[in-house]
Design a protein around this nucleic acid. Structure first.
Length: 85
DNA sequence: CGTATGACGTGCA
DNA sequence: GTGCACGCCATAC
């Protein structure tokens, strides 16, 4: 039984190094569906596991996108990590 | 299965 | 550069 798309997304996001940011589109592509950017965000939103640095996932435009704990916090973390938006 | 939802992406005015 | 509309996919009901 293959892991669900959501599990793949978690695995990929967990692999993101510090200071590195991936776009939902990129994560979806790595997950196996290059156009499932929407699904990626949807899954991350419903599953906010602390082991998942979802704050390292931003939009392709370079905008933050969203964050369950507050987009403001996300910006702070990215800024601290060295990821400039 | 069909409908509804959503942290998106791209195109066009 | 900004704003709006359509499309695309996975999950939940």
């Amino acid at each position: 039984m293959r892991k669900s798309f959501s599990e793949r997304v978690f695995t990929i996001v967990k692999k993101i190094s510090r200071g590195r940011v991936l776009a939902y589109k990129d994560v979806a592509r790595l997950a196996g569906s290059p156009s499932a950017s929407r699904a990626v965000g949807n899954i991350l939103n419903k599953n906010r596991e602390p082991r998942i640095p979802c704050h390292r996932v931003v939009r392709s435009d370079g905008t933050l996108g969203g964050y369950n704990r507050g987009a403001k916090k996300k910006l702070e973390i990215l800024r601290k990590e060295g990821a400039k938006i």
